[in-house]
Amino acid sequence: MMFTPVSRARLLRHAAAAALLLALGACGRDGATTASTAPLEIDRATTCDLDGMLLADYPGPKAQVHYAGEARPLWFCDTVELFATLLKPEQVRQVRAVYVQDMAKADWASPRGAWFDASTGYFVLGSKRHGSMGPTIASFAQQADAQKFAAEFGGRVLRYAEIKPEMVDLSGGALHDSRM
């Protein structure tokens, strides 16, 4: 088999064309690149995308989901809403990142910061502590913190992938909100 020598200029042109095709492939359908998936922080005006509640006005863990092709995350005032949304069979949007707050570091009454990748976390289901929607699913980055919380407030510790649709109940939401 005989190889034809390729000039350096021709090789560089092919490499540049390949890089351009890769860059275009990384863009969204409309040609715009997708937004960063770093966690954002809530402020006084951040509202829940499901019910319009101001996140800063309510206790308990919050969540944000970054979907492919979306410039901003969808906000959830409660982790129960997060799991109810993500675990629906009709949820087909491509999830790029899911963040929840580490309640070992955030103040329960007014949580700020302490965001971490939900898929790596530990969650306490069935505790006595309530979030913005009533009974909530407490989120923790470390297993020891989740176990300590469960020992004090009840509930069982689960990993992200262990939470199933039948474990998520949104029926108490507005009934527990005395500020509406």
Rank of each mutant, 00 (worst) to 15 (best):
A35F: 02
L12V: 14
G60W: 02
M1H: 02
A144K: 08
S110N: 13
D102V: 11
C77N: 15
A138H: 02
L158S: 03
W115S: 02
T47M: 12
G173V: 08
L87G: 09
A23C: 13
A56L: 06
S139G: 14
A106E: 09
P89L: 04
P165V: 11
D51V: 05
H176R: 07
M167N: 06
L24T: 06
A15G: 13
D30H: 13
A138N: 00
R10I: 05
A97F: 13
E90I: 06
P5G: 03
T46M: 13
E90A: 15
E41K: 11
R13G: 06
P89Q: 09
A97H: 11
W75M: 12
M133T: 06
G28N: 15
G134W: 10
V124K: 03
R96D: 13
K128Y: 02
M167V: 01
L55G: 03
K105Y: 01
M167I: 00
T37V: 14
G52L: 05
D43E: 02
V100P: 00
W115D: 01
T120F: 00
L125M: 05
F76Y: 15
W115T: 00
A9S: 14
L24S: 00
R129V: 10
Q147S: 13
Y67F: 15
G69Q: 09
G134I: 05
A161D: 10
G31R: 13
T34E: 08
T4I: 09
R44W: 08
R179N: 11
K62D: 11
M180Y: 06
W115A: 04
T4A: 07
R179D: 12
L55S: 04
T79P: 06
A26S: 12
S132D: 08
L54V: 10
A106D: 03
K105M: 10
E90F: 05
L87W: 06
A68R: 14
G121W: 03
T46C: 07
W108T: 07
P61K: 03
F83I: 12
L50D: 12
S110M: 07
C27H: 04
A38Q: 14
S36A: 14
R112E: 04
D177S: 07
A23V: 13
L22R: 09
A114N: 01
F83K: 04
Y58S: 00
G134P: 11
M180F: 11
K88G: 13
G172Y: 10
G69E: 12
K105S: 11
S127P: 07
K62L: 11
S119G: 14
F83L: 03
F3C: 07
D169A: 01
F3T: 12
L175T: 08
L74R: 14
S7W: 03
L55M: 11
H14C: 09
I163S: 03
F123V: 06
Y67G: 02
R112V: 06
Q142T: 00
F149N: 01
A114V: 01
R112C: 02
M53Y: 09
R129C: 05
R29P: 12
G134H: 04
F76R: 10
P59Y: 00
V157K: 04
L86W: 01
D78C: 02
R159L: 10
D117H: 09
F153K: 10
A56T: 03
A84H: 14
T33E: 02
F149C: 07
P59T: 02
L82H: 01
G154N: 04
V157N: 07
K62Y: 08
G60Q: 01
K164I: 00
A26L: 15
A17L: 15
A104Y: 01
